[in-house]
Nucleic acid binder design. Structure first.
Ligand code: FES
Ligand code: FES
Lengths: 149, 149
DNA sequence: AAATAAAAAGACCTTTTTATCTTTTATTTA
DNA sequence: TAAATAAAAGATAAAAAGGTCTTTTTATTT
């Protein structure tokens, strides 16, 4: 449904929202390490997110990425839109050219409520609100801590 | 979530279930045309499905693909398992290494019920039953008929 | 038996996605 | 001002997914 690129971007941005700020910027390397994604790839993605004003960056020593108040008002939807395109969230589960109730595929009426639900989740809360909720509810952005094997 | 390969395989098999039988076999070409998928690609997929005893085939003139009573007892799950692997239906929506309620990602509790639902749909009905339901409820396997533009 | 129709098998090609590497630019600090 | 640090930009590479083509095998029809 979502590309890896989008998934990396979402998790990394939420991580950034929780752990960085204008006063405490973070380098790509640190973030990539923290949530276990390939850092040069993440660097590319972050470039796009900066461009889309979803996150901010400053070059040089003591530089890095962070999220301003303004940035934090963007949504997870905005991330997806800028990496994959929003249509990726609305494709037919079985690959029909369109997903709509007029011409439903065999699983449309199972899939459609889910899609509405997740779209709402990604659209109706700002990244800052979403991030707070994630932290409050003890959701995970990585399972790195489980690699005890 | 599912690869195109799986989607093609599911749609084509359901089409076969509805339109072919031991007495009325169908060639790849006809099926591919009917549901609008690339025929050499579908040929490959059907090879795998024959191997997995999900569909049957006879070579030569008057040959083609069809579904026996025995075949019809398989499930859509079996198709997915043989093309993509079932794990594709159980991956974390945001790409965490595992999807489980002990270590949920930010959207786990939205995604998990949907996954259970769709898995049930694909597992608890035989392909023949599923196909009948699809026909009875007027679900579509292609939107070819809409290409009036 | 010869011609033909269709699947099986496997090699091959193309595009997209994922990932890396290198150079440049901006900023800070010593 | 020089050295160091970190992002920006862009070229490149590797892998996976998607798709095509050719040859072989099998069955049927004439
Ligand atoms: S038509 Fe297939 S999911 Fe809506
Ligand atoms: S943990 Fe992400 S969907 Fe279950």
């Amino acid at each position: 449904m979502l590309s890896r690129a989008s998934k990396y971007a979402i998790l990394s941005t939420l991580y950034l929202a929780e752990h960085a700020s204008k006063e405490k910027k973070m380098s790509v390397k640190k973030i990539a390490e923290a949530i276990d994604v390939p850092s040069p790839f993440l660097a590319k993605l972050f470039q796009q997110l900066v461009h889309a004003k979803i996150i901010s960056s400053i070059k040089g020593p003591k530089g890095g990425f962070f999220i301003t108040k303004k940035n934090g008002e963007k949504t997870v939807c905005d991330i997806i839109e800028n990496i994959d395109g929003l249509h990726k969230l609305n494709e037919c589960f079985l690959g029909l050219n369109e997903c709509d109730g007029e011409n439903p595929c065999p699983v449309h009426f199972i899939v459609e409520p889910f899609k509405r639900n997740i779209l709402g989740k990604f659209r109706d809360k700002s990244i800052m609100e979403f991030s707070k909720e994630v932290a409050d509810n003890g959701r995970f952005l990585t399972l790195k801590h489980l690699d005890l094997d």
